[in-house]
Structure formats: C-alpha cells, structure tokens
C-alpha cells in the first residue's frame, strides 16, 4: 500500500530523498522548486514511511501526509460570471492544488438559479471524468438545498458542496459532504478565519478521498495509476515536450494523458509492461471529454483476474 506524502524542505541534497523513495519502490509525482525551497509530492510504501521521515529530519525537511495527492478535482461554479470568479473559485482551486490535488475549473452554461438551473450532458460527462465534483454555491440556505435536489443529477462521483450557511451534510440532498463559511465572497480569502475554512475544506476533501481509497481497496485495481504514469513517461518521448500542465495527470483510478486520442490511442493500448502484459489487458483507453485528450481507466482485479 502506497501512502501519499508531501516533502517540504531546502533544495540542498533533496535528491537524496528522491533517490531513497525510488529505491524503496515509491514514486515522485511532482516536484516544485521555488527558489531555495522544494516541495515533493510522492507516494511512499507505508511500511517504509519512517525511513523517509528520518532522512527528512536529517535534511531539516518535513514530511506530511497529503491525502489529496494523485487526485483530480473539478471545482464547479454555476457560471463564469463575476459573481463567482475570480476570488472564491480561484482561492479554492489554488488551495487544493497546494495540498497536492490537480484542480480543473468548470463553469456551467446554465447553472444559475434554484428553479432554472440545469446541467448539460456534456458537462455531466466531463465532471464524471474527475475524482471529486466540488460545487461552489452561494449565500442562502434555501437556494443551496433546492438547487442540490436537481443540479447533481447523473453525477456518480463524490460531490462536495460549499456555501455560506453552516449546514449538516444530511440536510443537503445528494451531497457527499458539505462545507460552510464560503458563499459568495468577493475578496481574496486571506484572513485567519478564512484560511481556517480552507484548511477545513482540505481536511474534508481528504476524508472523502480516503473513503474512495477504501472502496477501491475492496476490489484493487489491476494496475496502480502511478505505474501507468511512469510507464507512459518512459515509453512515450512526446510527453517530454508536451506543454500542457501535468501531461500525465493522476486520478484515483487512472490517468489523463494530454495527447490527441486519434493519433496515440493505439500506441498506448499496446504499451507493454515488464511483467509481459499490455496496457489494453489491464486498462481501458478512452477518449476524454476534455479537448481530444486520452483517459485511461485501470480495470479492477475482479475483471482481469490478476494484479500487476
């Protein structure tokens, strides 16, 4: 079992951490160097976590658990108008990114109003490609509850709803979790209590993702998404020159590859792992709703009968 963790420390000798994690059979997912600081997002085998922690201590760095690592979250606003953007939505998206998630912003075409709100088929399919749908709603309790009754129709991933009133999750229909103290905020969230709210959001999101992990654990994937990512990066040189942010984006049950489907899907389907299996035997390679990207979904053990 791999544990998602974040290493924060100095640039000096940080490659020792990278090498240690790779030697232990873990993976480095993302590396951000900011002047003299470095942030590594990585997956470390649970049993060897203390070895990494000791090494981090020696380098005067810090290892923390980052449950959002390796997830792709859709932050959804009712529209892209000034009512919601830039402040609140960008703050939420940025904060979750800092905690290790990849966020995509979705602005609905007809998401406004409590009676007239709608979700188009395209939007629904696009949102369903993510691990979590985060709906950023407004100020009024009545509107949030009424809207929740129908806006999330057809979404089969966990839904986190944000709004101003402090409601219980049970009171918000169809929501997996609800986080209050948001609402329509038209300034940057930087006061102490606002930052606490964002921390709470990260915590709730982490809990939801942990539950997803437990569910996946019941019928494990034939291949870990991180393994797919590594194999793709090693075998497809075009990914090196790809200018998209995170050309191979990790998800809980697969990866999104930012290459055109038409040209590359056969190549990807026929990628071979050292164990002798091909990609198409352990995962489905699908066209993504996002541009003409490729979505790879790993198959569960119950379908393949084996785990790589």
């Amino acid at each position: 079992m791999l544990e998602p963790v974040m290493y924060e420390g100095g640039v000096f000798k940080h490659n020792q951490i990278e090498e240690l994690v790779e030697d232990l059979g873990g993976y480095i997912l993302q590396k951000n160097v900011m002047q003299t600081e470095v942030v590594l997002l990585m997956l470390v085998p649970m049993n060897d976590l203390n070895v990494v922690e000791e090494k981090a201590k020696k380098l005067l760095g810090k290892v923390t658990r980052a449950p959002l690592t390796g997830s792709e979250i859709a932050t959804i606003a009712p529209t892209l108008a000034y009512h919601h953007l830039p402040h609140l939505d960008c703050d939420v998206a940025e904060f979750l990114r800092k905690k290790g998630a990849k966020t995509n912003m979705v602005g609905l075409a007809r998401g406004v109003g409590k009676r007239i709100c709608q979700l188009t088929a395209y939007e629904r399919d696009l949102i369903n490609e993510h691990d979590i749908a985060m709906f950023i709603l407004g100020n009024y309790e009545h509107c949030i509850i009424e809207k929740s009754k129908k806006l999330y129709e057809g979404i089969d991933i966990p839904i986190i709803v944000l709004g101003a009133p402090e409601l219980k999750t049970e009171d918000v229909p169809n929501a997996t979790a609800y986080v209050g103290s948001f609402g329509r905020i038209l300034h940057q969230m930087r006061h102490a209590e606002e930052l606490k709210t964002l921390d709470k959001l990260a915590e709730v999101t982490g809990t939801v993702l942990d539950k997803v992990r437990v569910e996946i654990g019941k019928d494990p994937l034939a291949i870990a998404p991180v393994r797919i990512k590594k194999e793709l990066e090693e075998q497809i040189p075009e990914l090196m020159d790809n200018l998209h942010p995170l050309p191979v984006t990790m998800q809980m049950t697969g990866v999104r590859v930012k290459l055109p489907y038409g040209e590359y899907h056969e190549l990807i389907e026929n990628i071979e792992f050292v164990e002798g299996v091909k990609m198409k035997e352990v995962a489905k390679v699908l066209p993504s709703k996002m541009r003409d990207f490729i979505l790879i979904k790993a198959l569960p053990k119950s379908v393949t009968g084996f785990v790589v």
Binding site: N139, Y140, E141, H142, A164, P165, E166, G183, R184, I185, L186
Partner: peptide, 13 residues
C-alpha cells in the same frame, strides 16, 4: 432577510 447568515454575507459582498 429571513436568512441571517445570507444577510451577513450579502452585506459583505
């Protein structure tokens, strides 16, 4: 507003 929290956030916005 009958919605007290809503009124507070509306005022700030």
């Amino acid at each position: 507003s009958p919605d007290i929290v809503g009124a507070k956030t509306t005022k700030s916005l």
